Simulated assay, not measured.
Amino acid sequence: MTRVDLTLKPAPRHPICVGAGFVAADIVEGRTEEFVAAGGSCGNVLAILAWLGWTSYPVARLGRDWAATVIRKEFKSIGVEGDFLSDEKSVQTPIVIQRFVEDKAGKRVHRFSLACPECGGWLPRFRASTLQQATEVTESAIAPKSFYMDRLSPAALKLAGWAKDNGALVVFEPSSIGDERQFQKAVDLCHILKFSHDRLGHMRDLREAQQPKVIVETLAEEGLRVRWRGHWGELPAFKTPAFVDGAGAGDWTSAGLLHQLGTTGAKVFETLQKPRLLSALRFGQALAAVNCGYEGARGVMMAMTRDQLAKRLTALASRRAEASDGPQDTTLHESDIPTRLCATCASDEKGAPKPKKASSG
């Protein structure tokens, strides 16, 4: 394979990306500490883009609880716009617990849990954005160059159609099928369809979809497959010096792809050639590879500056293996994590909740 330029360049003129989908509070039970961070695929992709110089607008439903406070605080520190994050008393902000286990080969792998560790009941889950939220976006003055969605609803489809009609590049990254009619509409609307082989690889029809201009099927540590103009090709994954956590790898790949191709909107396809597409995908894979060296879906953002990340990418491009830059800095992750995470346990606990402080290392 020819050498690929992995130069990390800031986004020109702060292009706008709107995203509709999963935004949650991730509680990561790491090797030495437990911390909480804004997460969810939509939340991660838009946070990464903001960190890379974009203006990001996630559209999601949040409650008036500690999890929403964590998300808003971290988003603000990164530069993510919160205009379209709801603030609803009747809604509980989604929470996901990330744990680590060893597989049969002794490899450290992550597992996500949506169950309360105290009572075994469901933690707060995803609530779809409302049509009113979508209307607030479409009637605003913003003009997105890219649109990202990972969960479907009438509101998400309305936003995707609006974004596409206004020249935005639309990316759809489903984790499941759900409503088949909505799913097919999303596939027909998007320019780029990206899915995981582990989750949707059994859907052969997905690879044959005609409307998306690009289809990406991720294969975990094996890399990815990409369809461009009817032909499939494969890209191997980068080898990381030290693997710590694979969570968020797909989100970094998506953000890297958008960062390289989405700044001018859908008109990129007027001149897009295969080498540039492959280069954008390799850039996303490289970002993912670096992040795999740290705990958390966006651990690299807490561990190094953009300049340090640029140097690490240069090392990957020249195939130089580098050791870790040092211990992970989780300053932006530091937060009080209640001892009772679900509403049932919180209501059963006598007195005020006793917070459990996440160590900053």
Rank of each mutant, 00 (worst) to 15 (best):
M1R: 13
L6P: 09
R13N: 14
H14P: 00
P15G: 03
G21S: 03
F22S: 11
F22R: 13
A24L: 02
A25N: 14
V28F: 07
V28I: 13
F35Q: 02
A37E: 09
A37P: 05
A37S: 15
A38D: 05
S41E: 07
S41T: 11
I48L: 13
P58M: 10
G63E: 03
A67G: 02
A68R: 05
V70S: 10
E74F: 10
F75W: 00
E81C: 10
S86G: 03
K89H: 14
Q92H: 15
I95N: 05
I95A: 09
V96E: 01
Q98N: 11
Q98T: 14
V101Q: 14
K107Q: 15
R108Y: 01
R127D: 11
A128P: 12
L131N: 10
V137N: 07
T138N: 05
K145F: 08
Y148D: 11
R151Q: 08
R151K: 14
S153C: 03
V170R: 04
V170F: 06
V171H: 06
S175E: 13
I177F: 00
E180F: 12
R181F: 05
Q184H: 08
A186L: 00
D188T: 08
D188E: 13
L200T: 02
G201N: 03
H202N: 12
R204T: 13
L206F: 05
E208M: 11
K213Q: 14
I215H: 08
E217Y: 00
A220P: 10
E221R: 14
G223V: 07
R225M: 07
R225T: 04
W228S: 03
P241Q: 02
A242M: 11
L257H: 00
G262S: 04
T263I: 12
G265R: 07
A266C: 06
T271G: 00
T271W: 13
T271I: 09
L272S: 03
P275S: 03
R276D: 13
L278A: 07
S279Q: 13
A286H: 03
A286C: 07
V290Y: 02
Y294P: 04
A297D: 00
A303F: 02
D307M: 06
R312H: 06
T314Q: 15
A315L: 09
A315I: 05
A323M: 11
G326V: 00
P327K: 14
P327H: 13
D329T: 04
T331N: 08
L332D: 06
L332V: 09
A346V: 09
K350I: 14
P353I: 01
P353W: 01
K357E: 12
S359E: 14
